[in-house]
Design a binder for these strands. Structure first.
Length: 789
DNA sequence: AGCTGTGGCAGGGAGG
DNA sequence: CCTCCCTGCCAC
């Protein structure tokens, strides 16, 4: 069963982790077939570990769609067979043919070995099934962190500036060893030489650091170039190979400089953290210190130093700085031990080395699994489809207001379940590897999950848990891969089939709840919030009810009881709040909790939602009055009313966009430009609005939060009062217009009287353009009393 | 030398 | 006023 995932022969396993004496490289290719591209949309290809071997080969002969894809340097695909043979001849001619040997153990698969760069060879081989049967704990990992000195008057360390320098290099490793190379005792040049010596003595498999790709390693590289000390960190004594690259986490592109070290895997825990957060969405910051506290392994005795005080500590209190740097590497080790196992266990099945797996996106992982199987049987690969997906998940809201009790039911792994039960695969997947991979991964994941729950020893349990989490990530990406415009095996119609099947299932769930007397409030993709029918009161009865719901759905689709709540404040699609039975409040949705809302606004909304969920109209009014007064008397701190935005584009791109009229001016960029400090995409700017009128243009009336002076608060109180009103406006949905006005106003003549004010529940079930057709639905815009439910 | 998907809400600014 | 476009952020 695991044949596709874990390799085809033990020969694939490279036993020696620390040896790479075999100076060879593989070329895979297909022989003796003729596929005409116009008859069959398939690429002839070969697999090459070093793209420079094809230097000079006319680019126009390459299949365009493969340029710049995931395989730029590995998979060379061509429109025509003759062109492919030309390319192979070029590679062979470029090297001494006598160095080419056929390898017996690959007799069933034409693989040529070619003498070439050992670095690439090691990295290629080490990624195959190297870690089969090996535990993460057996890896020898080293953590590295550098501290730099910047002379007074300069803000950032500058890798080219003579007066800047590395002052500490902190090192630790997974054996518990710790060391600091101290810049007081050695010149920077000696420190670099010492670093190289230590790395060779300890000989780690993995080098780790937080933001190591964008700071520590590029800085070390630049300084070693300046001092003419070769940074020979490779296992073969080579210097790192460096290249710029870009990846995307959620909506945000992230640029970084990869530093490839021969025979070692480089892992940046910042990338692991970004990847972790792109599915969990729970982190406020991606700093090492924040992460260590978030995951609960920051020591209470940990030394903290503000980043702008590092130079001061080095000159005045170096011991504290050494403690600080040492704590950094210790936390890095813990962070990696927490997050890296997921990548580690994936390297067992994905034909790429650990360092690459840790940087790869999930679609790339699926493609690697597919390509691996196609390579094995020497089948050509499909061309990516042109076009786009047309459907997504079904989202709807039927009731606006505060009501309860609430049950949340959702379909377990909706899209993977649909794909498995309907045997969905790309039309181009001639080998039918796609559904087989999905099924095997799912079975294995459930198996690992069961084991992780039943095993006694903590280390085996966490190993099983890491394995099942890594498989979960891949499983959940199979659907996304179908709609991925660069995926070789993409298939938009199949992606649409998955989503529209999901929509049907959700609509069946809605119909069932309605027919049995429940009240559906909001649905989104695979989950449904509803007030259960009369008689379904206890948690056990709710679970029984959900089990009956599950039973009416197609085979393989399982609905589970995912939560019960005292009340729900339903606001808009994808925007709601829940009151748990232990009185905790959970708020969802960008219009209620977005980070683009000023902090005081988020706090105000949170408190107001609390009052609404608890039917406390007087309290709601009191909250409004209090915020209003605080704003007017400039009682808020700059952190409460400033807005933090990240700058997506470089300054030139922004300015060009504004000049050409293609984009509007933006306060965040204007503040950043006015500060005169350099900024890079991804940097965050905190600013606030100045002036006296409520209705000012942001980009003309903005100041950096750093400029705000509590003694002369010049924030625009009228503007922030308007913001407060905008936040309050969200709650207009829950009251009659008159009641709303009296709650959200300050009348000095008459004290506020909550009598007669009720929270309303509005049925918004019928949409002008159709919507749900099952079940009777009241007319739109009808106002119901909250007591009805 | 790169990249999983669609759906939804809010806010700013430009122009009607 | 309104609509449109764009960006940012979020749910799933």
């Amino acid at each position: 069963m695991n044949y596709l995932l874990f390799g085809h022969s033990e020969d694939e396993r490279i036993v020696a982790v620390q040896q790479h004496t075999d100076r060879t490289m593989r070329i895979y290719f297909r022989e003796g077939e003729t596929v005409r591209s116009e008859e069959e949309p398939l690429y002839p290809f070969f697999y090459l570990s070093d793209q420079t071997l094809l230097e000079g080969f006319a680019r126009k002969h390459w299949v365009k769609k493969l340029e710049g894809t995931l395989y730029y340097q590995y998979l060379c695909a061509f429109e025509e067979w003759p062109v492919m043979w030309d390319a192979i001849r070029l590679v062979l001619d470029r090297y001494n043919r006598t160095a080419i040997t056929k390898v017996d153990s690959y007799a069933d698969c034409p693989v040529l070995y070619l003498v070439t760069d050992p670095a690439t060879q090691y990295l290629m081989q080490s990624g195959r099934t190297l870690f089969k049967g090996m535990a993460f704990e057996a890896l020898h990992r080293m953590q590295l962190d550098i501290e730099t000195f910047t002379p007074p008057g300069f803000r950032f360390p500058n890798s080219a500036r003579k007066t800047d320098r590395i002052i500490l290099i902190a090192l630790a490793d997974s054996t518990g060893w710790k060391h600091v190379i101290d810049g007081h005792k050695l010149s920077e040049k000696q420190m670099l030489a010492e670093l190289v010596k230590i790395v060779h003595d300890r000989d780690p498999d993995v080098i780790e650091g937080h933001n190591i790709f964008n700071f520590d390693l590029p800085y070390l590289t630049a300084r070693s170039t300046m001092h003419n000390v070769p940074l020979t960190l490779g296992r073969d004594g080579s210097v790192p190979r460096v290249f710029e690259t870009r990846t995307a986490f959620a909506d945000h592109p992230f640029d970084y400089t990869v530093t490839d070290i021969v025979g070692r895997h480089v892992i940046d825990t910042l990338l692991l953290l970004l990847s972790y957060d792109s599915s969990k969405r729970s982190l406020e910051s991606y700093s090492l210190k924040y992460a260590a506290q978030h995951f609960g392994f920051a020591a209470s005795t940990r030394t903290y130093i503000p980043s702008d005080r590092i130079s001061w500590y080095w000159e005045n209190d170096p011991k504290t700085l050494i403690d600080y740097a040492t704590d950094d590497v210790i936390e890095t080790e813990k962070l990696s031990r927490h997050l890296a196992p997921i990548s580690f266990y994936l390297t067992r099945m994905i034909p790429t080395n650990l360092g690459s797996v840790a940087r790869m996106g999930s679609a790339a992982k699926i493609e690697q699994l597919m390509v691996r199987e196609y390579l094995r049987v020497k089948h050509s690969l499909p061309r990516p489809q042109e076009g786009s997906q047309t459907t997504g998940g079904y989202t709807d809201i039927f009731i606006v207001g505060s009501l309860g009790p609430i049950v949340h039911a959702d379909v377990e792994s909706l899209y993977p379940s649909i794909m498995i039960s309907r045997d969905i695969r790309p039309v181009t997947d001639a080998l039918q590897a796609f559904p087989k991979l999905l099924k095997d991964l799912t079975t294995m994941r459930l198996d690992a999950k069961r084991k992780s729950q039943s095993i006694d020893t903590a280390s085996s349990r966490s190993q099983m848990d890491a394995m099942q989490s890594s498989m979960k990530i891949v499983i959940n990406s199979f659907y996304g891969y179908l709609g991925y415009n660069r995926g070789l095996f993409n298939d938009y119609r199949k992606a649409d089939e998955v989503t529209s099947t999901g929509q049907q299932i959700l609509k069946q769930m809605i119909a069932y709840v309605r027919e049995t007397g429940g009240k559906v409030i909001e649905v989104d993709t695979d989950g449904i919030f509803f007030v259960p029918p009369p008689g379904v009161d206890t948690a056990e009865q709710e679970k029984e009810y959900v089990a009956q719901l599950s039973a009416i759905l197609p085979q393989g689709i399982i609905v589970v009881h995912d939560g019960r709540y005292r009340r729900m404040l339903s606001y808009k699609k994808k925007n709601y709040a829940l009151l748990e039975y232990d009185d905790r409040i959970r708020i969802k949705g960008s219009s209620l909790i977005s980070r683009s809302i000023e902090q005081f606004g988020r706090e105000y909304i949170h408190q107001a939602v609390d009052k609404l969920l608890n039917n406390d109209v007087s309290g709601l009014h009191a909250v409004f009055v209090q915020y209003r007064a605080t704003i007017l008397e400039h009682g808020l701190d700059v952190r409460a009313f400033s807005r933090i935005e990240s700058l997506k584009d470089p300054i030139e791109v922004y300015q060009e966009g504004v000049r050409s009229g293609r984009r509007n001016k933006s306060a965040a960029y204007e503040v950043a430009i006015a500060s005169g400090k350099p900024f890079r995409p991804g940097d965050r700017v905190a600013y606030y609005i100045t002036g006296t009128e409520a209705d000012v243009r942001g980009f003309e009336n903005c100041k950096s939060a750093e400029e705000w002076d509590p003694n002369f608060p010049d924030e625009n109180a009228q503007y922030y009062l308007r913001r407060l009103d905008e936040f309050s406006e969200k709650f207009a949905e829950f009251f009659s217009p008159g009641d709303f006005r009296s709650i959200f106003s300050t009348d000095e003549l008459f004290p506020f009287d909550p009598k007669g004010i009720t929270l309303l529940i509005r049925d918004v079930g019928i949409k002008p353009s159709g919507g749900i057709d099952e079940g009777p639905t009241p007319k739109p815009g009808i106002w119901l009393d909250a007591g009805e439910l």
